[in-house]
C-alpha cells in the first residue's frame, strides 16, 4: 500500500560504519505530507506521555511554587515569591543543600577513583576469575535500592545487627550506632551508596579501557616501558576525557539518593542525612499540614542547583572533548 515517499538526492557518502554521525543523513529532508504525518504519528506517544508526565509537571511546579496550598483544601492562594523567600530563609533548607553536596563529595570521588582501580585490574586478561569478580561487584547495582535500604538498617542495627556483632568480636563492647548517630549516619549512608552503585562506574571504566588499542601497550612494552610508566603515560591520558563523562554521570547520580535515604534513615537522626529530596518530601507529604507550595519552591531551587552543576560539568565535558580532539 505504501508509496515511495522519499526522493533521494544521494548526497553524502554513506556514514562511516560504527561511528555516530553528528548530523542526520541529509537525504530524507524533503518528504511528502504523508511522510510528515507518519513522522508526527511516530512522535505522538512520546509527545503525549513525556509531555504529560515530564514537561507539564516541570512547568506546573513553577506555578505551585507561587501559591500557598496544603493539599487538604481546594484553595490555592497566589502568594508570589513568598514561598521562595521562606525557603531561602529556612536554615534547614540550606542544611539539606549542604548535606546533599557533602554526600556528593563523599560518594563521587570514592566511586570514580576506586572503581577505576578495579576496572584496570579486571581489564587485564591475566587476572584469574575476572568474570566472577565483575559479576560480584556489579551485583548490588541490580538490586532494589529501597530494599537494600531496609536491609541495611538491620545490618547496621546497634543491638543485634551483624556489624555490631563483628565489632563485639574485636572487642568494641558498646556497639557503634553507625546509622543512628548523627555523626556517622551520613558517612555510613555514603558508604552504602558507593557499595550499591560502584558497579556502574566500574562498567563505565571498563568500557573506556576497552577503547585503548592494545597495540599501544605492546609498542610501549617493546620500548621497555614499565607498568607504572605505561599507566602514567598511556592509560591515564587516554582515559582523561572519559573521566569527565564518568564524573558527570556519577555526580548527577548522587543527587538521586532518595530511595536509599528514605528507606534507610528517613533523613534522620536529627536531620543529619536529610538530602534535599527528603526535605521536599517532608514538606510535601509528611508534614502535619502539607505545604505543597513551599515544597515546590524548594524543588524548583533544587532543580536550579542540579542544573547549575550540570551546566558546569557540561562545560567541562565540552572543554574535555576539545582537548581530546586536539590530542588525536
Amino acid at each position: 500500500m505504501a508509496r515511495p515517499l522519499t526522493s533521494e538526492p544521494a548526497l553524502a557518502a554513506a556514514p562511516p560504519q560504527g561511528k555516530v554521525l553528528r548530523t542526520p543523513p541529509k537525504g530524507q529532508r524533503v518528504g511528502t505530507r504523508k511522510q510528515t504525518l507518519w513522522i508526527w504519528l511516530f512522535l505522538m506517544p512520546t509527545i503525549v506521555l513525556y509531555g504529560a508526565y515530564t514537561l507539564y509537571p516541570i512547568v506546573a511546579s513553577y506555578w505551585y511554587s507561587l501559591v500557598e496550598w496544603n493539599g487538604f483544601q481546594a484553595e490555592q492562594r497566589f502568594v508570589g515569591i513568598s514561598n521562595y523567600r521562606a525557603v531561602i530563609a529556612d536554615p534547614a533548607f540550606w542544611s539539606s543543600v549542604k548535606i546533599t553536596l557533602v554526600f556528593m563529595l563523599l560518594v563521587a570521588p570514592a566511586r570514580i577513583l576506586l572503581s577505576l582501580l578495579l576496572a584496570i585490574a579486571l581489564n587485564s586478561p591475566k587476572l584469574p576469575f575476572r568474570n566472577l569478580f565483575r559479576t560480584v561487584y556489579f551485583l548490588p547495582v541490580v538490586t532494589t535500592t529501597a530494599i537494600v535500604g531496609v536491609v541495611m538498617q538491620f545490618v547496621f542495627d546497634p543491638s543485634s545487627g551483624p556489624v555490631t556483632s563483628m565489632l563485639r568480636l574485636v572487642g568494641v563492647e558498646q556497639g557503634i550506632d553507625l546509622l543512628g548517630d548523627s555523626g556517622t549516619a551520613l558517612t555510613t549512608a555514603a558508604a552504602v551508596y558507593v557499595w550499591k552503585f560502584f558497579g556502574i562506574t566500574m562498567v563505565y571504566w571498563m568500557a573506556a579501557l576497552q577503547t585503548i588499542p592494545s597495540e599501544l601497550y605492546e609498542a610501549a612494552r617493546i620500548d621497555g616501558a614499565g607498568a607504572w610508566h605505561i599507566f602514567r603515560h598511556i592509560t591515564l591520558p587516554l582515559l582523561t576525557p572519559f573521566l569527565l563523562i564518568i564524573t558527570v554521570l556519577t555526580v548527577e547520580d548522587t543527587f538521586h539518593a532518595f530511595d536509599l535515604m528514605q528507606t534507610m534513615t528517613g533523613g534522620g537522626p536529627f536531620f543529619s542525612t536529610e538530602i534535599i529530596e527528603i526535605y521536599i518530601y517532608r514538606w510535601a507529604f509528611n508534614a502535619s499540614i502539607p505545604q505543597l507550595g513551599f515544597a515546590s519552591a524548594a524543588a524548583v531551587l533544587f532543580g536550579v542547583l542540579v542544573m547549575v552543576v550540570g551546566v558546569l560539568q557540561a562545560w567541562a565535558l565540552y572543554a574535555g572533548r576539545k582537548s581530546r580532539r586536539e590530542l588525536s
Binding site: 514537561l55 506546573a60 511546579s61 505551585y64 529530596e277 518530601y281 524543588a299 532543580g303 550540570g310
Partner: peptide, 21 residues
C-alpha cells in the same frame, strides 16, 4: 533540544503535579 534540556531534571522533583494530573 527540549529532550536534552530535561535530561538532567531530577526525577521526583515534579511529583506534586504528577499526582495532581
Amino acid at each position: 533540544g527540549i529532550l536534552i534540556a530535561t535530561l538532567f531534571v531530577p526525577t521526583g522533583y515534579t511529583i506534586i503535579p504528577v499526582v495532581k494530573l
